[in-house]
Design a protein around this nucleic acid. Structure first.
Lengths: 264, 264
DNA sequence: AACGTTCCCTGTCATTTGACATAGCAGCGC
DNA sequence: GCGCTGCTATGTCAAATGACAGGGAACGTT
């Protein structure tokens, strides 16, 4: 309980995030190196990044990595696992903003503002690579390539949020679900989390509802309808899309322009 | 009509955007210098920026600055006026993503990807400061301060989109409208477009509807309700909020952390 | 075995929002 | 004056979505 506060800052131990203080030497075994969907840096740049690495943190499902309104000491790159960004209203309503996959960078807002505008929670057991917030711009601005990559990630995150806004504003419940399922499965494919096209990820219907701005009950019924239609088979622990192209058409998603994502 | 294509690329003349080829010498009279809501660079940095400036473009209300899916040769900083980013679905549905005010940077997605994921349309007569897309990273990465500012702008745009997602997902029609009105008036105050707290900007109810994901009819009724309640008086050419704090409470917006925005 | 928890599912009814049809009103060119 | 056009306003009805209440399966703990 004395540790309770630390969990909010990425410093928690044991029960709420386990910090392992080890430096860049571990970067040779970086699990992201095997990920086919990512753009890998030149050795020189990788070593530059490694020199800033502070260690590694683990969180279990349900644990909070960042808490809205706090000033975290560390920023992270996701090494493995899946997380979600959420935003709370004072009256308890919750909106899930987006999901984060291996290679994604966590805490950009804190990097420029000091303070987080949203919370981040682990959806699976996750491993994160930690950098000191105060060193971040030293890390990034002194390597033009990293500065570019950071901007790339920010611009693409913006594009993902745009797509989500289109969903919430223009698509009905079923279209939204299909759009979300396609997005998740696609990211799963890119990061090796969806062997044989089935994403193994446990998302509750309550979480889907909070992501799509629907009630839990309506979410449930719409999911059943999609299952009957054979478009998306979304179960608690997995998402299966029999025909990705057809699902795309149904949700009126345009073709995904497959480019390699950079990471830091 | 031979010029038709150029309008999509920021090169149009006369009827669709008027390009004035003049360089950094005009930067001494930059209209943004008078804007109190902005963070102004040191002389040295301003001159560095000026050396990249390619000229100035004007667009009238209704003209498209960028068209979704095209590769624009220029990127812009807004010098005066207001614009909106929109995204179209194949079946004609339109979602307005956000509004842009003086000091905002246009075309970040094109800067990293080459291609625009959305369109940008002028809501008033606007003046834009043009940079070559191909020179952009030279401009930004060789000045750590500019690299920081660009990231700052991207992170804050992301935060604005988050807030919009919360609106679309969790707030009902009236709350959404109040939230949008507060956002617009606040940005108007920061950029000198809202003398005496009344934002002079013509936004049609159809545009409000496309921004908030509501039907035109429902938008109309909700606007009337808000007028009756005395919360927001939104007319075709102006937005007035009698009590900003009360409006914030109504829409459950948390206090805006007033910081100076950088610009490039 | 009994219990508590978490999640998925269903029924019924209320509310919100949308669709369609129509009217008014200001501006504008002629 | 007239006929346009773009925007705002209303009425009526239908569809989408939410609120509330409760049941049942799976699973871990005692």
């Amino acid at each position: 309980m004395a540790r309770d506060d630390e969990s909010a800052t990425g410093l928690g131990h044991a029960d709420m995030g386990h910090f392992v203080r080890n430096g860049g030497e571990r970067c040779r075994e970086c699990p992201l190196a095997e990920c086919s969907g990512l753009h890998h840096h030149a050795l020189e740049v990788r070593e530059w990044i490694a020199s800033f690495r502070k260690g590694e943190v683990h969180y279990d499902r349900g644990e909070q990595v960042f808490v809205q309104g706090t000033r975290p000491p560390y920023l992270f790159t996701v090494l493995s696992g899946v997380l979600m960004r959420t935003r709370l209203l004072e009256d308890g309503r919750r909106q899930i903003i987006n999901f984060m996959f291996p290679g994604d960078f966590l805490g950009l807002q804190a990097a420029v503002d000091g303070e987080m505008g949203h919370s981040v929670e682990a959806l699976t057991r996750v491993t994160l690579c930690a950098f000191a917030r105060t060193q971040f711009f030293e890390l990034v601005t002194q390597q033009p390539r990293l500065s570019f990559d950071l901007t790339w990630l920010a611009a693409h995150e913006e594009a993902a949020l745009e797509e989500h806004i289109v969903s919430l504003g223009q698509r009905n419940a079923r279209e939204r679900m299909v759009a979300l399922a396609v997005f998740l499965v696609q990211r799963g494919l890119d990061t090796g989390l969806a062997p044989e096209g089935v994403l193994q990820l446990t998302v509750t219907q309550g979480q889907i509802a909070d992501m799509l701005g629907l009630s839990l009950v309506h979410t449930n019924r719409s999911l059943q309808a999609l299952r009957r239609l054979g478009l998306v088979d979304w179960k608690l622990t997995s998402i299966r899309i029999p025909d990705l192209a057809e699902a795309r058409r149904f949700a009126r998603l345009d073709g995904s322009s497959q480019t390699l994502r950079p990471y830091i």
